[in-house]
Design a protein around this nucleic acid. Structure first.
Lengths: 253, 253
DNA sequence: ATTTTATCGAACACCATGTTCGTAATAAAA
DNA sequence: TTTTATTACGAACATGGTGTTCGATAAAAT
């Protein structure tokens, strides 16, 4: 009941409780259209003026929707942005699930998480520019950082299972690697993606494989992550590295 | 003339044009006091509620000063924050100049920029928490990133002088290393500095020396930066690494 | 003691947020 | 096609914050 939306304290709740703009069955067509307009308005405004400078009024003007309509769907602009992020994440995770399923049936040799992230960024560069580019907001960058950190801390910890005292605590290494990864993503987006995703993956690998080995105090073998992924009960995205540079990690001087 | 301060378009200009709160000769005592109050108010409010959530009204309330006084000194809260940053930077750079002077007279064996940055952070943790902690604002983090990037790009480029085509472009490596460094600083501040500055310097080195060697495609010898520093005409802070881990950069597996 | 300067509060115009409500239009269901 | 349900809307409102101006007061400098 739409009238219920205006009950104090229940702001921003549609009947279906889904605030991304991916449609589900039987959702009113108007809801999908209204939300798509708001998301597109926000994404373009972020790139133009930076997230913090964007006002709800700006979004209403750009999307050409009413103020009470906005507040019927979202609590504030942060919630709108988060739902854009959830949309992107769903797209990404569904794609990775499909790749992992292919890997299990032997159709795909491996899943390379970093490469897939760069590919996904290239495919949705407009959204990624708003969420991870220089004009994005600190709130969403922190959200993205936490997401990637949570994704990577477990395989890193599993790699350390038999080593009680690495030279650098795993959570510090992971924290800094994720910052580097996001920094690289931002650089790539802000410089209009001068290299293909494959090259970006290579660059990231060159910079971080030696870091992981030095920080963890052990050499990491090819396909080690894949074994972990295969054993992981939920089949989640654990393939941080599907293959590594050969063992001579320091190029001849 | 104070009255001049209210001329349209000349907002936030004191007669002395200095908006940090470090006094110079003959500045009215009231100016120093007022600015110190505003800076302290902003720093404490940032840590409490995060920079973006802090309003000018909050600052006025906390500092107990008048609205027109605030706008007589600063254009907006961003300018107030930037002047805090300039103050901190001046403190840091003066300290480094003194160390470099000592190094030249043989009293100090080397200047280790990273270690000095962590030490300085420890000494001014309140300010650094506001400027580099989790509650800081994106604007100042970008400012800090750019400052550190500009500081490090030149020694990195000098290291690459004779190598035309490193595996990773120097500006990408530097960009990512600065992101890691800031991330580590933020982690350290937000976790109430569980390790001493020396340990943080060691951690950073373990993670980044192999990265630099892999990304630059060459081994970096001890004291190489020092030689660059000594030759640099302005004696600026170029000693990125004063000494390195021994040449076996990959610990035995 | 006098002059200069900084700070102040009040007033003002402006802008944005977030809520409420009745109405109109659109979509879905019968 | 008609009926019912739902969504979107504009106007009105209270609230809070920004940034400017001005004359008065107090503090600092001379």
């Amino acid at each position: 009941m739409f009238r219920k939306l205006f009950t104090t304290g229940h702001k921003g709740r549609s009947c279906h409780e889904k605030r991304g703009y991916m449609k589900e069955k039987k959702e009113d067509r108007r809801i999908g259209r209204t939300r798509r307009l708001m998301h597109e308005a926000l994404m373009s405004l972020i790139v133009e003026k930076g997230y913090e400078a964007v006002t709800v009024q700006d979004i209403l003007d750009r999307a050409d929707i009413g103020r009470s309509t906005f507040y019927a769907h979202y609590r504030d602009k942060d919630e709108l942005l988060l739902s854009s992020f959830e949309h992107l994440r769903n797209l990404f995770e569904q794609q990775q699930q499909a790749l992992i399923a292919s890997m299990r049936t032997g159709q795909e040799p491996e899943v390379n998480f970093i490469l897939e992230l760069f590919r996904h960024t290239g495919e949705h560069q407009k959204l990624y520019k708003a969420i991870a580019g220089k004009q994005s907001g600190e709130m969403i960058l922190k959200y993205l950082h936490r997401y990637l950190y949570n994704l990577l801390i477990e395989p890193h910890t599993l790699l350390m299972k038999n080593k009680k005292s690495p030279p650098v605590p795993v959570e510090i290494t992971t924290h800094c690697l994720v910052s580097s990864l996001l920094s690289l993503l931002t650089w790539w987006l802000d410089n209009n993606m001068p290299y293909p995703a494959e090259k970006m993956d290579e660059i990231f690998r060159i910079m971080t494989t030696p870091t992981i080995e030095a920080a963890f105090g052990r050499k990491v073998q090819k396909n080690e992550y894949d074994k972990i992924v295969s054993r992981h009960p939920e089949g989640s995205l654990m393939a941080f590295y599907s293959h590594f540079i050969d063992s001579d990690c320091c190029p001849a001087g």
